[in-house]
Design a protein around this nucleic acid. Structure first.
Lengths: 344, 344
DNA sequence: GTGTTTTCCGATAACGGTACCGGTTACTGG
DNA sequence: CCAGTAACCGGTACCGTTATCGGAAAACAC
C-alpha cells in the first residue's frame, strides 16, 4: 500500500527484502512455480503489487536464455496484404504475452540476411518470416535450430520447416474453372514478379486449368506485372492491343485488376460485357470498385494467426514435424465476370 | 576465416580471446568508441565477422540500462490508417537500428494501462503511442520521465509532452470552404466517435466554417458514425430521410464516405449531381470508387516518420521542449463534389 | 522415537555485456 | 632527460534475473 511510485527501479531484491524472503522465492512466485507455500506466495504477490514492480525483461532474458520476443520480418507494412498478416500474427502473440518486433526489410536482400543473422543472437526467441520470394538462407537458420515459421513459403518447403501458405494453385484454378464455365476460351493473365512464390503457384493453377480443358495458350497471353496498380494498367494495355483480344483477364492480384480496369475503360470497353476481369486476394478495394471484382479471398489474418500459433508451439519445444498449414481460398464471384460477348 | 558456424553461442569473451584483446576493447569496438587504435579495431572487427558474432541484446540491455527497443502501441494494425502510421515509424526506427515492438491494444483500456505500465520497466527505452482517444494515464508516464511521443493526441497536449498531429481542424474547414464556395448551404456531417480527438477537431472545423458563413446548422445535420463503412451507411440513411435533405454530406473519414455513397445510390440519388460527398484521410479507396472521392489527404506515413524521429531525439537525451509537430493536410478535389442542384 | 520422504526455501553461481578505474605506452614541451 | 599529457587498453564490479544445489522443517511410515 506504500504507493511506491519510484523511478521504476524496483528490483526483485527490493521485493525480497521487503517481504522477508529470498530473491529465489520471489523469482519462483514470478514464474508461477508450484513449490511455494500459498501463504508465502500471497505475501510476495502483495509486496509486488504495493511496490508496483514488474520484472526486467533484459535480466530475465539474460538469465533464462529467452527473451519473450519474436521477430516478424516482412517486406513492408503499408501494403494491405502484409499488414493483414501482421495483424493476425501480432494480436495472437500479444495474447500469449509474447512481444513482436517488426522488421520491415523493404525487399533489400542484404537487409534480410544481416537481419536473420542477428535475429538469432539473443535478440529473439524465434521468428515469423513473411517471405514472398524464396531464399536459400532459410536453410542456414534451420540448420542452427533457430525456431521460425515461414508465411507463404516456396513449395515444397524443405522437410521439417514449418510454414503456412494459402492455396494459390487451387485458387487460381477455381478462377479459371469459373471463367471457362462462363464460356471464355481466350483468357489472358497478368502475373506477378516471377520470383514470387504466390505468383508461380497461381501461374501453375492457371496453366493446369487451361491444360485440363485442352486450351492452348499462346505466350502473349501472359504478361508480367508487379502486383501494383500501374503494373496492372500497363500489362492490360499490352493485352488489349493484341490482334486477337482476350475475352477475359485474370490479374494475379486485386491491385493489378484495378489498374487493368482503368486500361480497359480507357479503351472504351466495358466490364464485364466486353471483357471479364478477375483479381486475387479480395482486398478491400475489390468490393469497392465498380463493377465489384470477382476475386479469390485469401484468409490473410488467419494466416498470420496460424503462423503465430505454430511459432508459439515451436517455442514451446514441440517438434516441427507436421507443422504445416495450408489454408483454403475461396472464389468470390461478383459483377466483373460474365459470359464472353458473342463472336462476330 | 574459421567459419565458426556454432550454435549461436559466441560471446564477447570468445572474440576477445580469439583476437587477443580484452573484452573491454571488444565492447568499445562494438559501440564505436573512439579510443581504440584503428589497427586493433580492424582486428576485432575481423574476428567478429569470422565468428559471425553479434551482441546479445538482453545482456546489453541489462548492463547498459537501455534496450534499443521502443514500443509502438496502437489500437490495431489492420486499419489502413494505423498501418500507414506504423509503416512510417517502423521504417524510420529500423534505419536507426532501433527495433520496434508493436502492441495492438484493440481499444481495450485495461490493456493499454497495464501495457504502459510494463512498457517502462526495462522493456523498452521509450514509446510511440498512437492514441486517437485521450487518456489521462499519459500524465503518469510523463511524470516518471518515460520518453514517449503521442501521435494524434488530444489538443492542447500538456506542456512538454511531445506529439505529432495532423491539421484536422483546418482540413475540415477546407472541405467546408470548398463546399460552400460551390454553393452548398445544407451541409450535413457524419462524425466519428465523440471520444476521438480527430473527430472532435474535425467537428470544430466544420462548425467554424459554418459560423464563418453565418450558416445555422440544425442539430439533425450531425450524425455520429464509427469510422467504418457500415457506420457511414447507416448515418447517411438517417440524413437522407430528413425532410430537408442536405445537398452535401461531409463524412469524417473515407470509410464512412464509402458507406454513405452506397446509401445514396440505394436511394436512387446521384453523386455529385444530386448530392455532393466528401471524405477525409485520402485512403486508397477514395481514388478507386466512382466517382472518385473529394477528400483531405493526411500525411500518415509522414506522421509516423516524424513521430519516430521525435522519439529518437528524445532518447538521445534532448529535451522535449518544442517537440511538437503539426502536419498540414491537403484538400484533394475529385469528382464527388459539384454545385448543388438548382432549387425547385 | 527413528528413518524416510516431501515440501519449502535460501545461498549463490551463472548469463553476456557495459562502464568505471587505472595502468601502460608514446608523445610532447621545456 | 624527465615530468606531463594523451591515446589505448585491461581488469573487474556490476546490471536484475533464473537455475541449481542443498539444507531445514514438516509430514509420513513403521
Amino acid at each position: 500500500m506504500a504507493e511506491q511510485v519510484r523511478t521504476g527501479k524496483v528490483t526483485i531484491r527490493d521485493i525480497a527484502a521487503s517481504a522477508g524472503v529470498s530473491v529465489a522465492t520471489v523469482s519462483r512466485v514470478l514464474n508461477g512455480r508450484p513449490d511455494v507455500k500459498a501463504a508465502t506466495r500471497e505475501l510476495v504477490l502483495d509486496t509486488i503489487r504495493s511496490h508496483n514492480f514488474s520484472t526486467n525483461r533484459s535480466a530475465r532474458g539474460l538469465a533464462g536464455g529467452k527473451t519473450n520476443l519474436v521477430g516478424i520480418t516482412l517486406p513492408n507494412l503499408h501494403a494491405e496484404y502484409f499488414a493483414l498478416i501482421l495483424s493476425g500474427a501480432a494480436e495472437t502473440l500479444y495474447d500469449q504475452d509474447v512481444r513482436a518486433v517488426v522488421c520491415p526489410t523493404l525487399h533489400q536482400a542484404d537487409r534480410e540476411v544481416s537481419l536473420l543473422d542477428r535475429l538469432m543472437h539473443g535478440t529473439t526467441d524465434g521468428s515469423l518470416i513473411v517471405l514472398p520470394e524464396s531464399r536459400p538462407e532459410l536453410r542456414v537458420l534451420a540448420r542452427r535450430h533457430y525456431p521460425f515459421v515461414v508465411v507463404d513459403p516456396k513449395e515444397p518447403l524443405p522437410a521439417g520447416m514449418p510454414g503456412v501458405s494459402a492455396a494459390h494453385f487451387s485458387g487460381a484454378r477455381d478462377v479459371m474453372d469459373h471463367l471457362i464455365c462462363l464460356g471464355h476460351r481466350r483468357i489472358a493473365a497478368i502475373t506477378g514478379p516471377s520470383s514470387w512464390v504466390a505468383s508461380i503457384e497461381r501461374l501453375h493453377g492457371y496453366q493446369a486449368a487451361l491444360a485440363a480443358y485442352g486450351i492452348i495458350a499462346p505466350p502473349e497471353w501472359l504478361v508480367e506485372g508487379n502486383f501494383q496498380i500501374e503494373g496492372g494498367y500497363h500489362a492490360a494495355q499490352v493485352l488489349l492491343a493484341l490482334p486477337q483480344r482476350p475475352t477475359a483477364i485474370f490479374a494475379f492480384n486485386d491491385n493489378m485488376a484495378v489498374g487493368a480496369l482503368q486500361a480497359i475503360r480507357e479503351r472504351g470497353l466495358r466490364v464485364p460485357e466486353d471483357i471479364s476481369l478477375v483479381g486475387f486476394d479480395d482486398a478491400q478495394s475489390a468490393s469497392l470498385i465498380s463493377p465489384p471484382l470477382t476475386t479469390v479471398r485469401q484468409p490473410l489474418i488467419e494466416m498470420g494467426r496460424h503462423a503465430a500459433t505454430l511459432l508459439l508451439r515451436l517455442l514451446d519445444g514441440q517438434p516441427a514435424e507436421g507443422l504445416r498449414v495450408h489454408l483454403a481460398t475461396q472464389l468470390i464471384v461478383r459483377a466483373s465476370t460474365a459470359p464472353p460477348p458473342a463472336e462476330d
